[in-house]
Design a protein around this nucleic acid. Structure first.
Lengths: 193, 193
DNA sequence: TAGATAGTAGACAGACCTGTCTCATCACCT
DNA sequence: AGGTGATGAGACAGGTCTGTCTACTATCTA
């Protein structure tokens, strides 16, 4: 059973598609372009993915999984919630500065597939909700659940907003201001009342 | 010179295109669909707009202008900056609840036209930067310019983030949390240090 | 050795895309 | 009445899209 080389091609298509979708958007990136860039026959792609939409879902799930693993490792580090939040913002800072940063693929997916019943929309929403849940878990260590839920929403909004501003070329100020606001908001939610 | 009916057709195309782009995205919405829905001949559209891209820019500029007018009126109201911010969040709250809310068209434009040199990208970025500028003007009444710039960025990020969460069906909690965070952040930036 | 599995190359269908062109029509103004 | 300009209806070109099909090859396995 040559399961390894088989998965290799499949994975290679996913990763190539990721790069192209990120750069050019979902609708504007055609199948032909993907298979050409991945150097793979069309039938190879269609054997692994029944349709373009399902390839997109796969790409999103793959990226979500990678990010989730990072959050997993973070969760088990023996540092304070504030430090964890700080680390997440540092990740984003580095991401924003990377050579071909083009904004958040999940946000773009929500933009291009506006129907909430569409599988692509669902996959993107899944990631965002997952991140929110992670943030909530982190700050639940220092505040009650009710307040943590609201605070997590605020953190997520700051992150999403910063990502958008970064896409408009204001990465540095955006991440700095967002981090400051996030930490001061957590501090405020932590202490009183 | 029948300038009025001529502009009518043109404006009607812009507004129809707006509705369709909002609902279905830019690439996924074809010219044929737009002219069918607007009940207008194809040549009528192409006489007014040299290309689809320029129609998109026109749609964005039109919506940006409408929003800007609203902000203009707000600027001249004799209320506190905090009340102005509160009003802007109330507008968003109502918007999020409107029957066919599909997220921010400008953010979607940034997602679909990722090239910063593309006219559509520029038009969308223009609107976001304009809004940020407006927010900054509002809070400059109660804090020095330097701090106001950062605070305006934070407010914008919260608004953008809330819009994204609203698109995922969490409109109510998103706008509530964002407003609370925004006002508490302004309060913190206003007073000390 | 025979078969299963995965991949390659490319033609192909059918739909849709943007943008152009032609010709008829209609309203308005002089 | 005649001229002018905006519009309507639709054919058309040339390209691109997704997804299917066939025929061929390589590799691993029973």
């Amino acid at each position: 059973m040559t399961s390894s080389p088989a998965s290799d091609k499949r994975q290679h298509v996913v990763e190539t598609a990721y790069t192209l979708f990120k750069r050019g958007g979902f609708h504007a990136t055609g199948i032909d372009r993907i298979i050409a860039e991945a150097d793979v026959a069309k039938m190879t792609m269609y054997r692994h993915f029944p349709s373009k939409d399902e390839l997109i879902v796969e790409v999103l799930d793959y990226r979500a999984m990678r990010f989730d693993r990072q959050l997993d490792r973070l969760a088990h580090e023996g540092i304070t919630p504030e430090q964890k939040i700080g680390k997440i913002f540092s990740w984003h800072e580095r991401w924003f500065r990377s050579p071909d940063f083009h904004g958040c693929l999940f946000a773009h997916a929500l933009a291009e597939f506006g129907d909430p019943r569409h599988p692509v929309f669902k996959a993107a929403a899944r990631q965002k909700n997952g991140l929110k849940q992670r943030l909530q878990s982190i700050i639940e260590e220092v505040m009650p659940r009710g307040r943590a839920e609201s605070a997590a929403a605020v953190l997520l909004m700051l992150i999403e907003g910063a990502t958008l501003m970064a896409q408009m070329g204001q990465a540095d100020t955006a991440i700095r201001d967002a981090r400051k606001a996030a930490l001061s908001f957590v501090a405020a939610s932590r202490g009183p009342q």
